[in-house]
Structures are given as C-alpha cells and as structure tokens.
Design a protein around this nucleic acid. Structure first.
Lengths: 347, 347
DNA sequence: AAACTTCCCTTACACGTGTAACCTCCGGCC
DNA sequence: GGCCGGAGGTTACACGTGTAAGGGAAGTTT
C-alpha cells in the first residue's frame, strides 16, 4: 500500500507494524526500542530511526493488545454504586482523587464501575470481564463467596471489600464505625450526659454505617448503669428535622450523636428554631457530629465532632499494589484509620 | 502463613477454548452460542451443552481480547485531575455517579484518568493507549490542537472538553459561568445594590470558573453607570475570612457574590462576627452564593443562591453515545445547563 | 441418480503486541 | 582455514477472541 501524496488523517490508528515499515526495520526491533530493551541489541542509528518514525506517525501502543500479550492486566476496578458515592460525601471525592492518582503513579489504571446493584454473582462476572488486577468494592451488599471465587478464578489477584469481613478469600478495608460511636458516646458521657439520642439517617445505604455507630454508643453507655441510648430517625430535609425537633420534649434526651456534621447542622438549626438551647447553655442539648467539616467550626455553638483519621490514599494504593504482587496473601483486615473526638462547644 | 480456606487463584483463567474442549465442540461454536448468534447455526442440544460447560468452568470473556478483535473499544475516558474533583465539589460526585451509570447502561466502561497535570500532548498519549471511544476532559488547561489530533488519529471517535471552545476538532460541553455571574449581578442590582464585591477563591483550579463569573457580574453592572464591581480574594479558611471581614469597612461595598455557598457561609459568619448586619437588615450586606446546598437554607438570614440547572447525566451520556456513533459530526458547543437565582433573605 | 438446499459445525484468519530463539555478518584466535 | 563470539538484527509464536468461508451429511428437488 503506497500512500497518496496528501497528508490526510489515517483511517486506522498507526500500529507498531506501520512504524516498522516506515523505519525500514522489523516489528520486533520497534518493540525492543520503544520498550527500552534495546541495550546491546539495536544500534544507535537504528534506534534513532525507529523513534523518529514513531514520532512522525504519532504511534501510541495499544493497551489492550499489550496486556493481552502480557497476560497480566493493570487495571484496578473500583466498584461503587451510584447511591454509595453521595453517601460517602466529600470524603469520598477527595479519597477517590488521591487514590486514583497514587495508583496511576504505580502503573495502574482505575476503572469506575458503578453498576446498579445487581446480584453479586452477575456483578462479579461483569467485573471479571476486564480482568482487573484488583477489585476494590465499596458496595453493599459486598460480594459473596461465589463472587469472590469467580473473580479469583478469572485471574484477579486481590479482592478487597469495605466493612466487616464478609466473603472468604477477600481482604477487608476496615474503618471501624463502631469505634466512631464509642468515641462519641464516651465523650458525651464524660461530660455528664446520660440520655443520648443517636441519629439513624433515613437515606438508603447509610444504615450499614449508622447501625455499628449506634452499637458503639451503646457499648460506651454500658459502663454507666443510668445511661439511656435511643435511636432517632432523621432524613436530610428541613421538614424531617422540624418534626424531630417538635417531638424533642417528649423524648427526654439531653444529647444527640448526629451521624455526621450535615445532619448535625440540620438538627441544630431545627432545635434552635424550636426554642431549645444547645451545648453548654443551661439545659443545653449536647450535639456531636462527625467528619469535621469546615462548616462545623462556623456554627454557634461550635460543633463538637468525631473526625476520622484516614490513612493517606497513597498507603492504601501501596497496600493494593502489594496484595497484587503477592496474590496468595492470606486474607486479612486492614484498618483504614481511627476516630477521634474534636471537642468544641456543642457537646 | 496458613492456607486460607477461600479459593486460590487458578494459574490460568478459563478461556473459550477450555469451554469448547469441555463441551466437545469447536471454539467457534462456543463463540456463536455465547454471543447469541447461534440461531439457525447451532442445534439446541449443542447450545445447552456449551452453556453448561461455560457455567461449570465459570467462564467470563476477556474484554481486552474481545475489543482487540472487534477493533472498536467501548471505554469512555473521563479525565479529571486530582485538584479538579474537589473544586467541583458534591455536584461533581453526583454527576459522576449518574453519568457513569448511564454510560454503563449504554454498554460503555468509564475509566477515570486523573493524571497529574502534564503536558497536553503527553496526557493525550497516555489516554490514547486505552483506545477510548470518547475522551471527556474536565481538565485545565484543555487539550490543544495537537493533542486532539493525536487522539483522533488513534481512533478516538469523540473528544469533548469542558469550558469555552479551545481546540479545533473537539466538541465542547458548556456551562456558561459568565451567565452565573450575570444572574447574580442582575439580582443584586435589581435589589438596589450598587457596590458589589465578587469573591475570587484562592484555591487553585477555581480561577477558570471564578474569572468568567466576575466578568458576568461586570457585564450586568454595565447597565448601571453608578455600579461598582470589585474582586475580592478569599481562601476557604476562617483566618482568611476574618481578614476580609476586618477590611470590609474600607472597601465601601454593600453586597458580595460569594462564588458558592460554602464561601458564602464562611464569609457570612466572619462578617457577623465582625459586627456587620446582613441581608435586609438596616445597612445589611447583600450576599449571594451558588450551588443551592442544603446548608444555605439553614443559615440566618437564609442564603440567596445561584443554582445551576444541569441537564440530567443520562442526556449527556446519550450525547456522548451519539457523537461516538457519528464520528464525523462537526464540532459544536453543547450547553450543560443554565443558571437561575433562588432568592431568599441574604441578598 | 445427480444436483441443489438446509442444517450444523469446523477450519482458518485477523486484531496488535512482547519476547524467546535463531540467523547473519564480521573480526579475532588457535 | 576452521572455530568462536558478539553485535545487530529477524522470524515465529503466543495471548483470547469474533467471524467469514468452507464442508459434510441428510433431506429435497429435478
């Protein structure tokens, strides 16, 4: 095939064969040169010719063909269904950005796969098509044993789930929500509060975080025989908050752990509007949030909050990389971080 | 290390050849059956045997091999550098989730590629390796003409950038920030404000949104000869806000467009702490935010805000799909949405 | 009975890449 | 002169898949 004189766009992307033709060498030589394996095999002049030809043609290797040949894929699949991402909130966004960048630095490609929650096995099959080196799922429900087995059999080196260990064969990334509740509860109890409400968000998908937090508050309260812990339902709307505030006097509570700072802010506003005092004021209701958002510092009283000290995304990326390189590592739980109370004025 | 009870990685994942052997047929037959092309070619009994064998082996097709053979890839690459995602905030997260789900429904795979901002051409090369059907970049600076040409030549059917049209050959997704500023400015002017400050966030990456918004306020002010528009620098910290509030009396302003609701809340708190009145109070400073977050409704005075009415992610996904199917569509700008003022009490 | 059709399945090639193994000069050494 | 060895390449195969083309046997038409 001789090309006409005009510099028209090539209909098919340039391949390494095209580069080879143009440089007047074999395709193998092109491969060696462009992958840095040319030392002692290919002369300087030839290398220069190859590089020039590749540059002129705008050659870019074909990742699929490459990883097909190599046998090992280099993609890390992050499975987070559409309704999970908002639940994680801004923490998720910043984590995602850092994690993605770190993995990219290690040579991996991050693929988002927010399938609408399907049967675990069907989801696993869809993931396995990409032959990912690792699958990291923030999904609920987590993949079951059959799903993990399918992934492992199809070559996935590491399967990581989030939350309490679920499927055998899968590693676990653990951010112990129980501890968040325990820390908040202990803090309120230490300040003399004894009748504690715990917000359970109405939003779907948050229950698996909220329930262990509630249990954590209960376990903190176990040390105080006169302590009472009571779950409270709340949706992230003004209406829902107003309802809860209106019912407040009947609840007989003196403090509340508000799940996170946004719910806390919503609730504080509603309680204030209903005429209740907050924080250290006389008869003030104690409020503890979570996540340590900037807005919490702007509220009055300033919001006491439980902050997650998450290990940096680079370290999680390094962990994933390690698990990929040693595929037979026995499954274990890895702590993602710890919780600490940031004491301010609201509780 | 004890051997885990869970399944171990099989040395070689099952291929269609393995299925063929097990079913006692040729590999081609397997392919036809599993891809639904078996009507009239393969007998019912044979089909059943093939499906059973595939099921027993846990066979999953190899996406890379498939798309290599098919020639056309099915991935949509979303290029958003790490420092961009937080700038978009929660809007980005929810958009991302919806967009990803919609594209998945159309048969595409979304790959996140948050490369650290490199030279446009180098970034384009990295993207091209994946042979994406489409590249959608939220990056700054956007890919230049050479980068777009490289992508097109390597088979990318559609390149979409975000912001004002930049590179020839690329389609444009436009959310006219100028209009946001114009809407906010017009609103404040209609309420009698004449000396308007406009927050310019100190956070990197936001300038390309903030600058057109400032220009938009200016263009709204052009209709009022006595109007003054003044840019104000502000970082998202309490300290920065306190500084600005302290300097406020010297600025001689009666209103401020605060870039978004978070900056607005920060600034309102600082101004209140410095003893300034807000909103409709006597000598109250007018404040307009943007994004219409829940928190704005909880502030006192309630925050007036500029809301982006973004078209649903499904429609953007459909657009991308259409552009992929008709690769020679002339580049055009597509509006992502419009802005409207939600008038409350702060301005 | 020969030719044609239909059904069902197989053989053979292509996609783009990496790399082990081989091949060819060419100069040096016994 | 024959053997060795290294520098500088090339040939050949493998990865897993989709599909066009072929092919044989049984039934149907001429």
């Amino acid at each position: 095939m001789t090309d006409p004189a005009g510099p028209r766009a090539t209909p098919t992307p340039p391949t390494s064969a095209a580069v080879a033709r143009r440089a007047g060498v074999s395709r193998a030589t092109v491969s060696y040169v462009l992958n840095g394996q040319a030392a002692g095999r290919v002369g300087e002049r030839t290398q220069a010719k190859v590089r020039a030809a590749a540059e002129e043609l705008g050659y870019v290797p074909h990742a699929a063909a490459r990883s097909l040949r190599a046998g090992r894929g280099s993609i890390v699949l992050l499975a987070a269904p559409a309704d999970t991402a908002p639940a994680f909130g801004s923490l998720f966004t910043s984590f995602l950005a850092g994690f993605q960048t770190a993995l990219h630095g290690l040579g991996y490609t991050v693929v988002l796969h927010g399938a609408p929650a399907a049967a675990p096995l069907a989801a696993a099959r869809a993931w396995a098509e990409l032959r990912p080196a690792a699958v990291l799922t923030l999904d609920a429900p987590p993949p079951d044993a059959a799903a993990v087995a399918l992934l492992r059999r199809s070559g996935t080196a590491a399967v990581l789930t989030h939350g309490p260990p679920a499927a055998p064969g899968a590693h676990t990334l653990l951010l112990d929500q129980h501890e968040a509740g325990r820390a908040a509860g202990a803090h309120l109890l230490a300040r003399g509060r004894r009748r504690i409400g715990v917000i359970r968000p109405a939003e779907p998908g948050l229950a698996r975080f909220a329930d262990p937090r509630l249990a954590g508050v209960r376990s903190a309260a176990a040390a105080h025989p006169d302590a009472v812990v009571r779950p409270l339902d709340l949706a992230l709307t003004e209406h829902s908050a107003a309802q809860l505030a209106a019912a407040w006097p009947d609840l007989g509570l003196d403090a509340v752990f508000a799940y996170n700072d946004e719910y806390a802010m919503l609730l504080m506003r509603a309680l204030q509007d209903a005429g209740h005092a907050l924080g250290t004021a006389p008869d003030g209701i104690g409020v503890v949030g979570a996540d340590d958002l900037l807005l919490g510092r702007l509220l009055r009283p300033r919001l006491t909050t439980v902050r997650a000290e998450i290990i940096p995304p680079e370290r999680i990326a390094a962990l994933v990389d390690r698990l990929i390189r040693t595929p037979d590592t026995a499954p274990a739980a890895h702590r993602l971080g710890t919780f600490a109370v940031v004491a301010r004025d609201s509780g």
